[in-house]
Design a protein around this nucleic acid. Structure first.
Lengths: 241, 241
DNA sequence: CGGTTAATTGACCCACTTCAAGCGCGGTGG
DNA sequence: CCACCGCGCTTGAAGTGGGTCAATTAACCG
C-alpha cells in the first residue's frame, strides 16, 4: 500500500501537484517504520534531522508541563506530517508521540532542503501544510478560551471527522478515533472525569456513538450546530499557492 | 526611521541574512501607512493580496465567536508580520486589528512569490517566522489548558518582555504594552474582573508595575519562576535555516 | 486468575464567572 | 471654565462549571 496516498490526497485538495513534483517527493522519501502505540517520535529539545509523515494511525503533539500535566496541541492522522515544522525551526519545542499503532515514513531535512531549492511551488505547499496546523491551533485556542466543555468536545469531533473524510478515512458516518478519555482531556483542557460526563451527555442526546476507538456521528447537523462549527479554517480549497 | 529595522533584527537573531537578501526584501516593500488604534487590518473571510509588517505599535489576531466573545490568538509588535500566513493560506480564518497606533508596511503577495522563486533561503526564513508564531500559539494553548490565571498572566508578561527585548524595544526593565484589561482577558481566556484581580495580586506581590500602557518587571526572577517560564519555544538561536 | 489500564460514578470544593455599582480621568462642547 | 460623557479600572456579592478525591466496574491479557 502506498504510504504517501493520504499525503498526496491532502495536498491535492489544496492545489495541483504536478507529476514531476510527486516524483520529486518520492525521491525524497527515506526510511519507513511501524511504531506501536505510545512511542515517542521526538522530544522537546531534540534537533531532528528528519521529518515524519504518518502513513496510517494517530499521533499527538504534546507540550509537557513541569507539574506533570500535558497539553495535546495537535492530533495527526494518515497523510499528516507530525513535525515538518522542525525543518525550519531546527529545535523541537514539544514532544511528538504515537497514539495508536502507526506506520510512518521519514524525510531527511537535507532532502527537504534540496526540494526547497529546486521546487519553490512544492515548498510553498509544504509551508501551507504547516500553516494549516497553525490554523487548527488557533481554533483550539479560541475554543479553550471561550467555549464550555460540550461545545469543545463537539467541535473536536466535527473537526477530526471532516479532516478524516477529506483524505478518505471515513466509512459511512463512522471513523477511527483511538484516543482514550485521558487523551481527550489533554486535548480539551478538561479532567478525565469531566470528559467522561461530557461524552455521556453527547451520547444521551443521541449526537454520537463512541465505542472501541470508533466514533459515529448519529446526528451530524445537531453536532455541527452544538459546536458552532465553521469549516473555513480547515482550508479545503484548491487554489494556486 | 527605517521601517524594517526591527524586522531585520528579528531575522538576524535566527540566521544570517546576506545583504543581497536584505536588498531583495527592500525591493519587495510596497506602501506604508499609519493606522490608529482599533483599526481592522484584515478580516475573517478576506483574501488579501498583501501581507502586513508592523514598523511600530501593537496589533492582535482575533478569532471572533458567534456569541460575540473574542479570542486573541496572537499579539504582534514592531518587526512582526501580522498576516504573512495569508500568503500561502490565501483565505483569512480570523481578524487582524491594531491595538495601539501602528506604522505598517505592506508586501504584495506577488512580490513575495517572486522572492520564493529567486531566494529559497530567504523564504525558509519567512517560513520560520510563521512557525515561530505557531510555537507561541502552542504555548498559549498549553497554558490555557493547564495553568491558573496568575501563571498565565506572568507567562504572557515574560514572553512579551523577552520578545520586545530581542528587537530592542525594552528600556531598563520596562516596555510598552498598550493592552486594556479587556484585551488581556481576550488573550488569557479570563473575564475582565478576574484579569483585574490577578493583576492586583501580581502588583501586591511586588512582581510588576503596570501603568499608562507600560509594564515594569520589578522582580524578574520571581516572575519567571511563577510563570514556569522556559524560553526555548521563542527560538532565539542563530542557525543555518 | 491476578494485574493493569480505561471507563464510570458520587460527593465535595473552589477558581473563575456574572451581575451590579462606583470611580477616575481625559476629552469635548456649550 | 466647567459640566458632562464615556471608557477603562476597581470592588463586592453571589452563583456555577468543572476540578479533585476516592472508590467501583469493565475489559483485556499474559
Amino acid at each position: 500500500m502506498d504510504p504517501l496516498e493520504h499525503f498526496f490526497r491532502r495536498m491535492a485538495a489544496r492545489d495541483d501537484i504536478s507529476s514531476e513534483e510527486q516524483h520529486a517527493v518520492r525521491r525524497a522519501v527515506g526510511a519507513s517504520e511501524r511504531l506501536p502505540p505510545r512511542t515517542s517520535i521526538c522530544r522537546l529539545g531534540d534537533r531532528p534531522h528528519t521529518s515524519t509523515l504518518i502513513a496510517s494511525g494517530y499521533a499527538a503533539r504534546v507540550v509537557p508541563r513541569v507539574d506533570g500535566s500535558r497539553q495535546i496541541v495537535a492530533l495527526h492522522m494518515a497523510g499528516d506530517f507530525v513535525d515538518l515544522h522542525s525543518f525550519p525551526l531546527k529545535l523541537m519545542d514539544h514532544d511528538v508521540e504515537t497514539v495508536s499503532d502507526c506506520q510512518v515514513v521519514y524525510f531527511a531535512h537535507e532532502a527537504l532542503r534540496e526540494l526547497t531549492e529546486s521546487h519553490p511551488h512544492l515548498m510553498r505547499v509544504l509551508w501551507l501544510l504547516t500553516l494549516m496546523d497553525s490554523a487548527i491551533q488557533r481554533q483550539w485556542l479560541a475554543l479553550m478560551g471561550t467555549a464550555p466543555a460540550p461545545e469543545r468536545m463537539a467541535h473536536l469531533i466535527c473537526e477530526q471527522f471532516l479532516r478524516a473524510e477529506s483524505v478518505g478515512l471515513v466509512q459511512g458516518q463512522t471513523f477511527a478515533f483511538p484516543l482514550t478519555q485521558q487523551d481527550l482531556g489533554d486535548v480539551l483542557g478538561l479532567s478525565v472525569v469531566h470528559v467522561n460526563r461530557t461524552l455521556q451527555s453527547l451520547r444521551q442526546s443521541g449526537l454520537v456513538a463512541w465505542e472501541n476507538g470508533r466514533v459515529e456521528l448519529l446526528d451530524r447537523r445537531a453536532l455541527l450546530e452544538l459546536a458552532q462549527f465553521e469549516p473555513e479554517y480547515l482550508h479545503f480549497e484548491k487554489l494556486p499557492r
